[in-house]
Design a protein around this nucleic acid. Structure first.
Lengths: 234, 234
DNA sequence: AATGCAGGCCTTGCATGCAAGACTGATTGA
DNA sequence: TCAATCAGTCTTGCATGCAAGGCCTGCATT
């Protein structure tokens, strides 16, 4: 179902080549992919359903910029899904564990080679892959969508993206799964998510007014509300 | 985002007015809704992403008919999500509990009035509403999709749809939540899902060949595999 | 009578055309 | 000098047209 256009766009977004907030012109994409706007629109619509892009009527399509509210909810959702899956899943067999360890090896490689985009993808996909090796397609799809949104969230903030720490967490989770201790794996997953969320900084708004506002110590001026000229506390 | 067409179609499907396997013609829908095929196609595409309809190339759109494999996975996914949500959620406050109890009252009304379609909707939506009152939009969306698929699954099989038993389960779950015992609520939810799944019968295939196959004791002939002419054991 | 075959009808797939909203920049007026 | 307005240009929204593939029916053939 996911055609080439959707995949290309999603890959470009989660690998950071298309920054959050970037505009996506139907006409340009159509020309770039050598198809008509129709197919581009369909791909964009699918990505919209996944909350990866957003459309502003008559204005254009943009890579989504999840606000902190949405970020919190996505993390809460991930906690629920990952914890619930592990807590209710049957223990993995040796082959399933082997596939998870193969993934960990990939992570190691990407770290060793300093392949940043690949690493971003792998770190996020780890959680989806746990569900995938268990063979649950609906949950895998859910996890893939949530991790894509998580990557978008990270890209919007200055995340202290400690890949090594995350990788260590992953190793421990796989360890618990290998030991058949699913409850522990579930506990570790929540802990891991909490750590990642805690490492998230404030909104790094690509808003040209941000610097000015910061300098003048103005409130972020919620749109419409004419920021009631609050003088700096000098 | 969900336009009127998508809503109407989804409502018709989950209320059983559009049976699983029914064909949906773009042209007919376009005329019925008084719009062009474009908008119908977009709505169908969205429903396809939600696994509620499926398209067979150059053949047409059809209301999805989840097979038993998919059914099992959807139930597993629901167990994971609902258990995980309740197990990781903070206790509900009084207002949230009140909203759940209002839902239970709606269920009671529908039962009393024998309003079957409304009841189908309410019974499924109960679980999504638990997440909704907690304010988690991503999870709510996930639950709504999973329950829609669950309804489709029920419609495909002769489900011993004991609404009263389900309602009693719901009452007990809300009771646990009201008591602040989220762990118990989580446990009850899984139990409830197991009961619903257990009440599901075999595929009630609307396949005119089913009777013939049954008579001849042929395997369901997984497409492509020329069923190796197994003579009846006479 | 049964089987192979072709014409036609039905479906979607995709491109294109046209209209309308939203922003930008220049121009005009004070 | 500044502000307001209006034309121009971008964008998407939606309808429509045409092409291509699958299936069904009727016919010819064996």
């Amino acid at each position: 179902m996911p055609d080439g256009i959707e995949r290309s766009l999603l890959a470009a977004i989660v690998e950071g080549r298309l920054a959050p907030g970037a505009q996506l012109s139907e006409a340009q994409l159509a020309e770039a992919f050598g198809v008509s706007r129709t197919l581009v629109r369909e791909a964009l619509a699918r990505l919209q359903a996944r909350h990866v892009v957003a459309v502003r009527p008559r204005r254009g399509w943009f890579v989504a910029r999840p606000d902190s509210d949405e970020a919190a909810q996505v993390f809460a959702a991930r906690r629920a899904v990952e914890y619930g899956f592990l807590a209710t899943a049957r223990p993995f067999d040796a082959e399933q564990v082997a596939r998870l360890e193969a993934h960990l090896a990939e992570e190691r490689d990407a770290i060793a080679q300093g392949d940043k985009p690949r690493l971003t993808y792998l770190m996020g996909d780890f959680h989806a892959r746990i569900v995938a090796v268990a063979g649950n397609e609906p949950l895998t799809e859910i996890m893939r969508n949530l991790t894509a949104r998580t990557i978008l969230i990270s890209l919007c903030r200055q995340s202290s993206d400690d890949a090594l720490a995350s990788h260590r967490d992953h190793v421990r989770i796989v360890g618990a799964i290998a030991a058949g201790d699913m409850a522990e794996a579930a506990r570790l997953s929540v802990e891991h998510l909490d750590a990642v969320e805690a490492g998230l900084g404030r909104d790094t708004a690509p808003d040209p007014l941000a610097a000015l506002r910061d300098t003048l110590r103005l409130d972020p001026a919620p749109d419409g509300a004419a920021s009631s000229f609050a003088p700096s506390p000098l």
